[in-house]
Nucleic acid binder design. Structure first.
Lengths: 232, 232
DNA sequence: GATTGACTCGTACGATGTACGGTTCAATCG
DNA sequence: CGATTGAACCGTACATCGTACGAGTCAATC
């Protein structure tokens, strides 16, 4: 397991940026940079979704030619990786939390993780296909460390982490996948009534119409954490 | 929430298949049919992955022209939907299980679900992006019914189902995403050692190298089920 | 014999990722 | 100072993709 693909270095050596005068800019566009490319890619993904991100469109937004991007980035997949990881940065929990409150720390980080992904609906399904970037690894490291300090035995640590990971990923992917637009909502409604004879139980429980995603996430999370620490 | 996209009818009206003589076949290929198209799409996906499925390649394998597919199928997305759902069929648990063994039933279905997806590594990440087909809905219905009969209150039912769903989806996506080829494994190894200073805890627990996916899945599942039924 | 409709396919179009070979300009060096 | 270098950028070109369109081919029917 672990991340895919090697670490083929991009052609761009190091970001030095000493020259105050950019090379060429017909209208006051700032020069290209990895940071600008990634930030704009996130904008584009937010606006148009995964299929909406094309190298040409990205370049247009940046006021540059399509091929200029390839100076800064190896290929389109790298753009995805960078955009994804940039969205998953974690600044840590506020200092309000006491150092002993491991449970608050875990819950805070996981809910922040989830809400970060929900703010960028393309991110969850991307994360399931791409390599693990530094920010995700950082979150896993923090999670690991916190649980370990809280007393989870090393033998149980991986199971605990993966179960929590699964919960976050599954919940976010599902949530992001369903109920995107109002049109979908209408279509779902009439489709459900059409199928109500074939799936009576999930119709009755209104499984697909239940809107309390946040509550379900939190309850499931508590369920897992309770299971990890029977006495608390 | 619920499935996306309307139900635009394909041009093909009903499968009648009375003519014993096919229209045209230079070499003994059987005639096109939705079933053959879907089965071949699954083969192609298994062999080449999601990006490996193109309409032209699919047609080649079927010994037909690319555009002939569009008589049977609206567009490529439908091919994905059909291939995905065909892989998720559930024939039910063997009758060995006693009717009262709800827990065995649930575990059996979920493990079958997971192993079906692992047999077709493209399926998990696809399921997270596509609509819910009849076979997935059937599984959810079965799950819902079983849990309800086992005594889960209606108020807790959706949380229970989504938590189990998250577990299956998260675990399968993660598993399918990591450690695909031996090359990746090697790359992961050296990458991990490179990063061992930055992520000491997950390095120590060998989180990304732990290979006991089946055990982790089963343990996490037990954890959830125990949480659902404190006394058992 | 004419008509219909199920089914197939070749051609064509617009879009995509990106290889390749320029061009431009700032910094460096003789 | 002029020549050289290398970072940054971009236009063109190509292979490949999904699929619109219209024309073909048969079997069954009228």
């Amino acid at each position: 397991m672990a991340a895919k693909r090697g670490e083929a270095r991009s052609k761009r050596p190091q970001r030095i940026s000493v020259s105050p005068r950019p090379v060429q800019e017909p209208r006051g566009e700032p020069p290209l940079s990895l940071e600008r490319i990634v930030a704009t890619a996130v904008e584009l993904l937010d606006a148009q979704g995964v299929d909406g991100l094309t190298m040409r469109r990205l370049a247009d937004r940046l006021g540059s030619g399509a091929m200029s991007l390839y100076w800064h980035v190896d290929n389109k997949e790298k753009v995805f990786d960078l955009a994804l990881d940039s969205v998953l940065e974690y600044r840590g929990s506020p200092q309000v939390v006491e150092p002993q409150d491991w449970r608050g720390e875990v819950v805070h980080m996981l809910e922040d993780w989830r809400s970060s992904m929900l703010r960028h609906p393309w991110s969850a399904s991307l994360l399931s296909r791409r390599a693990l970037g530094p920010n995700i690894l950082g979150r896993l490291e923090l999670l690991s460390k916190t649980l370990s300090r809280a007393g989870v035995a090393d033998a149980d640590l991986n199971v605990a982490i993966w179960s929590l990971w699964n919960h976050v990923m599954g919940a976010t992917i599902t949530r992001g996948n369903f109920s995107l637009s109002d049109d979908d909502r209408v279509a779902a409604q009439q489709r459900l009534t059409t199928l109500s004879e074939r799936y009576p139980t999930i119709e009755r429980s209104r499984l697909l119409l239940d809107n309390d995603w946040d509550g379900a996430f939190r309850k499931g999370l508590d369920l897992l954490l309770d299971g990890l620490f029977p006495r608390q």
